[in-house]
Simulated scan of single mutants.
Amino acid sequence: MTSPTLSVATWNINSVRLRMPIVERFLTEQAPDVLCLQEIKCQEDQFPYEAFRALGYEHFAVHGQKGYHGVATVAKVPIRDFSRHDWQDNGEARHIGVELTDPAHQGMIVENVYVPAGGDIPDREQNVKFGQKLDFFERMTRWADTVDRPTLIVGDFNVAPLESDVWSHKQLLKVVSHTPIEVDTLQRFMDAHGWADIGRQHIAAPERYYSWWSYRSKDWKANDRGRRLDHMWASPELAAQAVAHHVHEGARDWEKPSDHVPLVTEFAL
């Protein structure tokens, strides 16, 4: 008898209502069991539930706000709301955690997070947003130290930690998302729970691995100035059950794309 498998996807969709056609395409082509979305940019009552139901996704956990931010987790398998942390202590909708409730998936926790971008100046004194980003990670780090369940945390972390996670390490060292202080802060978060970076377990450095390409780049594919801002990290025991990981770069070429592409991890549970 084979072990049941579970596939989980994460995608910063940059407005779920605007980009529902490509979400439908992705779900039709890839059919993950669980999809974690960031930057849905709508309130909970505006979320396109019926469009997801039509594709077989009948379980929802949505934490939205008007016009900005917002996260949502939709699933084919039963889930329940598990956590809603306010990592900035300012009321922004940037986190939703769910528990998978069917026996086959052993009460696995999936945390879906959208970390602030942090503005343009990598200095806390000159840029309040950068300080908020670092504080966000510090609160997550304190939380990670207490995690005692098999947990997957996914989302837009807005940090590309490794040299091979960016198109030019030297040129981006002073650019927010790849600065040494952000990389160090992210590493402390990783160490607090011993998270395993599933993406890099399957696409080992120094192999190129990007998940975001700026809209400002006229030909994203030719220029390929990407960064790995999106991540899927797991508790050690859960990470050992990850059997495949995919980066769907082609979605960056779809009509009216997000500037991020989806990541999918498959688990044998």
Results as ranks from 00 to 15, higher is better:
104 A>G: 13
171 Q>C: 07
158 N>R: 04
198 I>G: 02
244 A>C: 02
156 D>F: 05
16 V>L: 10
236 P>N: 07
65 Q>D: 06
25 R>Q: 15
3 S>M: 15
228 R>S: 06
243 V>W: 00
209 Y>S: 15
89 D>Q: 14
99 E>N: 07
181 I>V: 15
85 H>K: 14
263 L>I: 14
113 V>K: 07
98 V>Y: 02
179 T>A: 08
174 K>D: 14
249 E>F: 12
128 V>T: 15
83 S>I: 02
186 L>D: 03
208 R>E: 14
167 W>E: 09
154 V>C: 08
181 I>K: 13
165 D>N: 04
61 A>P: 05
192 A>E: 05
105 H>G: 00
62 V>T: 01
195 W>Y: 06
157 F>E: 02
45 D>V: 11
250 G>E: 15
231 H>K: 10
210 Y>M: 08
65 Q>E: 14
255 E>Y: 13
99 E>F: 03
97 G>E: 05
99 E>S: 10
239 A>S: 03
87 W>T: 04
2 T>S: 15
165 D>Q: 08
85 H>T: 11
217 S>F: 10
255 E>I: 13
213 W>I: 07
173 L>Q: 15
29 E>T: 12
244 A>Y: 06
3 S>P: 10
223 N>G: 12
39 E>R: 04
36 C>F: 05
253 D>M: 14
111 E>M: 12
250 G>R: 15
218 K>L: 12
114 Y>S: 08
234 A>F: 00
77 V>K: 06
4 P>W: 12
209 Y>N: 12
18 L>C: 13
102 D>S: 15
189 F>H: 02
216 R>V: 05
131 G>I: 05
157 F>R: 02
149 R>V: 08
242 A>F: 09
199 G>A: 12
25 R>G: 07
53 R>I: 11
195 W>V: 00
127 N>C: 11
76 K>Y: 04
88 Q>W: 08
260 H>G: 03
5 T>P: 07
85 H>Y: 13
113 V>L: 10
197 D>L: 04
171 Q>A: 14
138 E>A: 14
62 V>M: 08
180 P>W: 01
249 E>V: 13
43 Q>N: 11
148 D>T: 13
140 M>E: 10
261 V>L: 06
219 D>R: 13
134 L>E: 07
250 G>L: 09
266 E>G: 11
76 K>C: 06
16 V>P: 06
165 D>P: 06
103 P>N: 13
71 V>P: 02
21 P>V: 07
43 Q>H: 12
166 V>S: 01
152 L>T: 04
169 H>P: 03
210 Y>K: 01
96 I>L: 07
267 F>D: 08
